[in-house]
Design a protein around this nucleic acid. Structure first.
Length: 201
DNA sequence: TTGGCGATTGGCT
DNA sequence: GCCAATCGCCAAT
């Protein structure tokens, strides 16, 4: 479990395109090495916020908040929203260009006991089903904003050991702008995916 | 300096 | 399924 040797993803392995990266990350693992041990999960749902997308925080240019979206692909962009939740994204373009992939749900792997404590529930299905829950279960907050996920830091991306299921595609969840764009990816049939039933099959 | 609003969640009906 | 809570950001004042 927590001692498993992981095959971390290198930056050159990440597709240099937001939408391709969003699809590529389905079935990969996100790993956080914490003082309490290794927390990890297999990503089953993502959303792309590509170049020129009016719904992307990077759309109106770089600001103090969204600076991490302009780092080379494979860096963490963490922000706080609705006064309650942190969101974990992976920057997705070349340095100086804004883009990101929101991690919306994962299937818990390592450190489930710690995740249960961080989330305040023992319901496995609810540990990381939804972007705010995912960040909370992983112990991710603003301190990790800007971290390189492709270097020897505490937060990394890794290859999963088993083969994933088929990948579905849908509109993104919770948006008002560009709400018709089909930029959400998920593992079909997974009960760890968030959103209404119609967007999980 | 201010106010409208958001890539959500949890609790209640 | 619906809705309030909550607060940082930023465009406009």
């Amino acid at each position: 479990m927590g001692s498993t040797r992981l095959r971390y993803l290198r930056r050159v392995e990440l597709p240099l395109d937001t939408i391709q990266l969003a699809r590529y990350l389905i079935g990969k693992c996100i790993v956080h090495e914490t003082r309490a041990g290794r927390l990890s999960g297999r990503i089953v749902e993502t959303e792309a916020y590509p170049i020129g997308d009016p719904a992307a925080h990077s759309f109106r240019g770089q600001t103090p908040r969204n600076g991490s979206m302009f780092l080379a692909r494979g860096h963490a962009y963490v922000y706080f929203i609705y006064g309650s939740s942190f969101m974990l994204n992976v920057s997705s373009e070349r340095r100086g260009v804004g883009g990101g992939v929101l991690l919306r749900a994962f299937e818990p792997r390592d450190g489930i006991g710690v995740m249960e404590r961080l989330r305040g529930t023992t319901r496995l299905i609810d540990l990381a089903r939804g972007p705010g829950r995912l960040a909370e279960a992983l112990g991710v907050d603003r301190e990790l904003d800007g971290m390189d996920l492709c270097s020897s830091g505490p937060l990394r991306l890794a290859r999963a050991t088993e083969k994933g299921g088929r990948i579905g595609r849908s509109v993104r969840i919770g948006l008002t702008r560009a709400a018709d764009r089909v930029l959400r990816f998920y593992e079909r049939g997974s009960s760890f995916v968030s959103g209404p039933k119609a967007l999980r099959g």
